[in-house]
Write a protein that binds this DNA or RNA. Structure first.
Length: 215
DNA sequence: AAACGGATGGGCT
DNA sequence: GCCCATCCGTTTG
């Protein structure tokens, strides 16, 4: 083995070959980030392997919005939402599922984007094993489902999404998806499953995507 | 195709 | 004690 090869094999491999989205991508207005995240790819590395999916559905949660966990100030649970943008906020819902959010806006402002559905791109077999379902459409078509499929339920709050093991990478990192959603038209509706400020138009999805949680 | 109920536990009043 | 940013199997029309 030559010296260059020895150096290469002695050094740990880079965590992943992707160039993550820059911090500035997240430190913008939350609604703008919620829209810009459509098409972005979420990559999750674990000892079991890599899973990845393209974001097709998001919801914005704003600091003056009754449905937002942060709307009544910081607590032990929601503290990550007030931290720097580009970090994770994950919480337990209904005692059995977790929802994954991307923290947005300026530090000190409690806002985030809920990731509601992914188009599965890589590691479908591992996703199926984790989900207990073989149906591709059922793997990541809901906030609780995608957390299970990517194995990110126990990701610590405040994890940096530019570093891994969970990373957000630009749309072009994986081959473009086909179908109507490839046009990239964004549909706006009210949010799902909330009872406060339910009229606000803060849900966004790729029009024509078969991978969203609900029509 | 839509409606419903059960599972299940932490957060907040 | 009540409220959930959910999901799934079962029932009902």
């Amino acid at each position: 083995m030559n010296p260059a090869a020895r150096r290469r094999s002695a050094r740990p491999l880079p965590a992943h070959p992707f160039k993550p989205l820059p911090a500035a991508f997240f430190a913008a207005a939350t609604v703008a980030v919620a829209r810009a995240l459509l098409g972005v790819v979420l990559v999750s590395d674990s000892p079991q392997g890599r899973t990845a999916g393209r974001i097709v559905e998001t919801e914005a949660y704003l600091c003056d919005d009754g449905a937002c966990h942060a709307s009544r100030g910081p607590t032990d649970r929601n503290r990550a939402m007030f931290g720097p943008a580009g970090r994770s906020y994950t919480y337990l819902i209904y005692g059995m599922y977790h929802c994954f959010n991307v923290v947005t806006a300026a530090k000190g402002v409690g806002e985030a984007v809920l990731i509601r559905a992914l188009e599965p791109l890589q590691g479908l077999e591992l996703m199926a094993r984790r989900r207990g379902s073989d149906t591709p459409l059922a793997l990541c078509s809901g906030p609780g489902k995608l957390v299970i499929a990517l194995g990110i339920g126990s990701l610590p709050n405040g994890s940096d999404l530019r570093k891994g093991p969970l990373v957000l990478v630009p749309p072009g990192a994986y081959p473009p998806s086909g179908g109507a959603a490839a046009q990239g038209n964004i549909k706006v509706t009210t949010r799902i499953g909330i009872t406060k400020d339910e009229h606000l138009p803060l849900r966004f999805y790729l029009e024509g995507s078969p991978w969203i949680s609900r029509k």
